[in-house]
Amino acid sequence: MKNLYTVFLCLFTVFVINAQERYLTKSGQITFFSESPLENIEAKNNQVLSIVDASKKQMAISILMKSFMFEKALMQEHFNENYVESDKYPKATFRGKILNFETISNTESKVQVKGKITIHGVTKELTVETLAKKKDDAIYMKGSFFITLSDFGVEIPSVVEKNIAKQIKISFNFNHQPFKK
């Protein structure tokens, strides 16, 4: 009986440790896409840091603005220098709560992530519908949403107004692995 009790205690301890686990990726992907009558602009960032705290059901994301890679060097230059002013605001961040975290299973399902996003020094509340899945001890999250440039104080000069969409589609794909060390 005492042995059984020990086994239960051990199991319980393991469960508690697991519940505090953190998951992270340092190579998350974020793509933004601007569709306009004159040209489509796409930029990819493969160095996004995303952390999921399973015990607190929280999520934190950090993005380096200079890590967005464009097809054309000139677009990348304009993006950094004129639009997001990445010297002044080198990072974009998101911090939020995964609302229905307990529903994440080994098949893909929708969860809501609610939190605050900061781009270009401007912070906005946001709820994003995300496809999430937990498999082989990794947490996968992906989805997309739109942001309005003017909400974040990003000004587009009238000369190139027709080249850049007012609403930019942001897609993300994170493959969080358990954090060891």
Partner: peptide, 11 residues
Amino acid sequence: CTGFLMDVVLV
């Protein structure tokens, strides 16, 4: 170099 998150990032 594109910046520093938890690590220094070079692309």
